[in-house]
Design a protein around this nucleic acid. Sequence first.
DNA 1: GTCTATAGCCAGATAGAC
DNA 2: GTCTATCTGGCTATAGAC
Lengths: 204, 204
Amino acid sequence: MNTDNKEQNTESEILNAAKRIFLLKGMDGARMQEIADEANINKSLLHYYYRSKQLLFEAVFKSAFSMLAPQLNAVMNDDSPLFDKISNFTYNYISFVAKHPYLPNFIIQELNRNPEFLNNLMNEKHFPKIDKFKKQLEEQIAQGTIRTIKAEQLFINIMALNMFPFLASPLIKAFTNTNDIEFKQLIDARKTEVADFIINSIKI
Amino acid sequence: MNTDNKEQNTESEILNAAKRIFLLKGMDGARMQEIADEANINKSLLHYYYRSKQLLFEAVFKSAFSMLAPQLNAVMNDDSPLFDKISNFTYNYISFVAKHPYLPNFIIQELNRNPEFLNNLMNEKHFPKIDKFKKQLEEQIAQGTIRTIKAEQLFINIMALNMFPFLASPLIKAFTNTNDIEFKQLIDARKTEVADFIINSIKI
DNA sequence: GTCTATAGCCAGATAGAC
DNA sequence: GTCTATCTGGCTATAGAC
């Protein structure tokens, strides 16, 4: 139906526009007028579809988080060998985030202001949990194929090495004295180098 | 003089209060009234001393950055052997940030919204530059004491492993299923483990 | 469903008394 | 230097016509 399509179009137009603005400026920095302009519609339509700025923001946050969570879940829960897992995750994650550079920063920023957001999400099925990864790691340590390291620490290190460059890009560019193109090349090289760095560190 | 002391007291009271609020809520989220309350003074005094919210914020940012920069400068510019440098930096940095947990996130967040802030700071003498670190690293690689790695990548890795846990603590706590006390213990262990992780990876 | 107009509030900034 | 009172603009949200 025409009406149904129009509804869906406008509603998802709004969500997409809101994503672009909220990811760029955050909850506090974003303006409803800006989102309306971005979606080429009237400001009052935002309230018609989403009632309030807060609810629109929550829809955006949930959508953004559901893009990121499966990526992280890949480290935790799949059955490939440890080193393959690290290599694949690194390659896939950096490729993914290079296309959505504001995503990790947005998630982390808004979680710092509002950690309770996680309460709703933690019970969902795609929410990453460390147990399986921990078991796999402990088995390999027992077999003597890798050094002793706590699963939590290794997981933090994997996340850190992959996510940090996107969080701190202005700082990194300034300190390493690289322009946008050189920085992009650094990131690109990390698709394989990060995994090498990690594996070198834990293999015996 | 009495008057001078009072001036200095009020002015630095304001700056300290502003730091606490801005670090917690960021430029967009902070309210001048909140800062005035935090400093136990009247709102109009903020304008008397700092003219505008923007100028007060810039004073806070500059002060915060000047606390962090010397820490990072330690990796880049001093004369100790590479492995010592990495160990010392890791220990010192994590100890330092554990006392100022909002500092790195504040800097990174506001730089993402406003990368031009770095333009003013880059010419100051304490601003970290990579050249010396790069030279040291290349010498060691030529001598065959460490693996081949670009200085930029190693520097990013050192920053990432040290800073990330403070940036993403809500996410890490949720994924690794740790409470505040357990998380503090993880961080504490990293004062030495992070350096081991890095050195293991690059030593031959 | 979509628009215009406006209510109502809150924040940053200033005027002016003391 | 410090206060109270107030201006002014901008923002979220709603009322109501079409």
